[in-house]
Design a protein around this nucleic acid. Structure first.
Lengths: 141, 141
DNA sequence: TAGACAATCACCCTTTCGGGTGAAGGATAA
DNA sequence: TTATCCTTCACCCGAAAGGGTGATTGTCTA
């Protein structure tokens, strides 16, 4: 943005200087003020269009990429702990409770407790629903 | 687009007329050409920026929508039938086998058969993995 | 018409999940 | 220091899911 303003200022300065020079050079000839105005109008319109396009170009780029913004507010609202989120993430990767237990170096019963608490907090009955809801709430990718 | 050009032409005509009038009105006063140029430059830059923004506005809208292209090639490659895809879709919506059976007016055993075949074709062991893979392959939304 | 395939259902058995209850240790806040 | 929450684990029980085999019906095609 700052660069755009700088470039624009520079372009304006150069153009004013150029026109000043033109004014002296072609004084003898019968060029009307309308001609100057036309030239200035055309050039500055072009610059304006370019600026307008430049301004939106960045916006478009941002929209294109699939962005994932972790919804920490919702996480806190539901009261889901760090460990529970870990379990939820692995669950969404298609792992069984036993596999999650092995990966986190805890017992199967522990994972069962975590998942039960998760289902209560997410207000669901099945892991498939939990995954669905967690994704809808942007708790997981 | 045609309307934009028309509006632009009209604005230009009006401005030229306005400046012509200004030129006669303030002839007595010591307004330099630079002043006129400055006014013209500012106005036409604004018009240019507006035009530029207008041009990209529609483009941005198109990009925003998340597109889903159903991968029929992959579906045929894996040999997944219509009915199996139905079951897969409902599965991804978090429904249990019993719920799917009720929704499709068939028995629980039928859904079990379909899901077993699905797991074989998708080369997975669990429904969570099946959903994951089906989404990755764009078989379901 | 025989063969292939989709769709349906049944029965068996094992594993996994989910719900409920209880409890212990550790960290943190009132 | 007491209370609260997180994390861990155990046990029980019923429901759901998964794996295997077999069978029937209908449709479509070589």
């Amino acid at each position: 943005m700052k660069r755009t303003i700088l470039l624009y200022s520079l372009a304006l300065a150069i153009l004013l200087f150029l026109l000043q020079w033109l004014q002296f050079s072609f004084m003898v000839k019968d060029l009307t003020i309308e001609f100057y105005l036309g030239v200035v109008a055309t050039i500055f319109t072009a610059v304006g269009i370019w600026t307008g396009l430049k301004l939106t170009r960045t916006k478009t780029k941002v929209v294109v990429q699939t962005e994932f913004t972790f919804n920490e507010i919702e996480l806190n609202r539901l009261g889901i702990s760090k460990r529970e989120l870990e379990v939820l993430t692995l669950m969404a990767q298609g792992l069984s409770n036993q596999e999650i237990a092995d990966k986190l170096f805890v017992s199967l019963n522990t994972i069962k407790t975590h998942s039960s608490n998760l289902f209560l907090k997410l207000e669901v009955n099945r892991r498939t629903q939990a995954i669905q809801k967690a994704k809808a709430l942007s708790l997981i990718r």
